[in-house]
Amino acid sequence: MNEISDSSNLEFEPLADSAIVYRALLRKQWIDRENNLVLFDAYLLRPNDRGLSLTIASVSSPEKCAANFKNCYGVASLQVGQIRELGLDAVPDSASHAEIIGLPYPKDDRDRAERLADLLAERSIIVWQHRQT
């Protein structure tokens, strides 16, 4: 895993376990619309990303989170404590943004990456979806 030191994270208070964060679902194939579920692909770390992008719910809404992207098909919520239960963390890097850190890249450890992604998806609740036309 690519670890990059970033001292700017130190200026933001750690998120409480009870804090809610949003994950923007930027691909149609990240959502099972029939069952209203997030699929594990939404939580796979992509090359060159060091963490998965999150919006901090206390300073945003699902609609505002979705509006930050040209194409957003849904927004899922997660509780920070549920992320930490998996040995991962949600670390803020601005007043409104955080990243899930500690995930392996699929190319480095596919089984662990998919298992953690699946566990994150199971803990996610879709709180906003783009209306299909």
Results as ranks from 00 to 15, higher is better:
residue 46 R to N: 15
residue 46 R to D: 15
residue 46 R to L: 13
residue 46 R to P: 10
residue 47 P to N: 13
residue 48 N to R: 12
residue 48 N to Q: 11
residue 48 N to L: 10
residue 49 D to K: 02
residue 49 D to F: 00
residue 49 D to C: 08
residue 49 D to A: 06
residue 50 R to H: 13
residue 50 R to W: 08
residue 50 R to F: 08
residue 50 R to I: 10
residue 51 G to V: 00
residue 52 L to W: 03
residue 53 S to L: 03
residue 53 S to G: 14
residue 53 S to W: 04
residue 54 L to P: 15
residue 55 T to K: 08
residue 55 T to Y: 14
residue 55 T to C: 12
residue 56 I to F: 13
residue 57 A to L: 03
residue 57 A to I: 05
residue 57 A to G: 09
residue 57 A to H: 08
residue 58 S to T: 11
residue 58 S to P: 09
residue 58 S to R: 14
residue 59 V to Q: 12
residue 59 V to F: 15
residue 59 V to H: 15
residue 60 S to T: 04
residue 61 S to F: 13
residue 61 S to G: 03
residue 61 S to Q: 03
residue 62 P to N: 07
residue 63 E to R: 01
residue 63 E to G: 08
residue 64 K to E: 12
residue 64 K to Y: 15
residue 64 K to L: 10
residue 64 K to I: 05
residue 65 C to W: 09
residue 65 C to D: 10
residue 66 A to N: 05
residue 66 A to M: 05
residue 67 A to M: 09
residue 67 A to E: 11
residue 67 A to V: 02
residue 68 N to C: 14
residue 69 F to W: 12
residue 69 F to G: 03
residue 69 F to H: 14
residue 69 F to C: 10
residue 70 K to I: 10
residue 70 K to T: 11
residue 70 K to Q: 11
residue 70 K to S: 10
residue 71 N to R: 15
residue 71 N to T: 09
residue 71 N to E: 14
residue 71 N to V: 04
residue 72 C to Y: 04
residue 72 C to H: 06
residue 73 Y to L: 08
residue 73 Y to V: 01
residue 73 Y to M: 07
residue 73 Y to N: 07
residue 74 G to L: 02
residue 74 G to W: 06
residue 76 A to N: 03
residue 77 S to K: 15
residue 77 S to T: 09
residue 77 S to I: 05
residue 77 S to H: 12
residue 77 S to F: 14
residue 77 S to R: 13
residue 78 L to M: 09
residue 79 Q to C: 14
residue 79 Q to F: 11
residue 79 Q to N: 12
residue 79 Q to Y: 12
residue 79 Q to H: 09
residue 80 V to R: 03
residue 80 V to G: 06
residue 81 G to R: 03
residue 81 G to W: 10
residue 81 G to I: 01
residue 81 G to E: 03
residue 83 I to E: 07
residue 83 I to D: 09
residue 83 I to V: 09
residue 83 I to R: 12
residue 84 R to A: 09
residue 85 E to Y: 11
residue 85 E to G: 11
residue 85 E to F: 12
residue 86 L to S: 05
residue 86 L to F: 07
residue 86 L to H: 07
residue 86 L to A: 06
residue 87 G to Y: 15
residue 87 G to C: 07
residue 87 G to I: 05
residue 87 G to N: 13
residue 88 L to W: 04
residue 88 L to H: 05
residue 88 L to G: 02
residue 88 L to S: 02
residue 89 D to P: 00
residue 89 D to T: 01
residue 89 D to H: 07
residue 89 D to G: 03
residue 90 A to P: 02
residue 90 A to C: 02
residue 90 A to K: 01
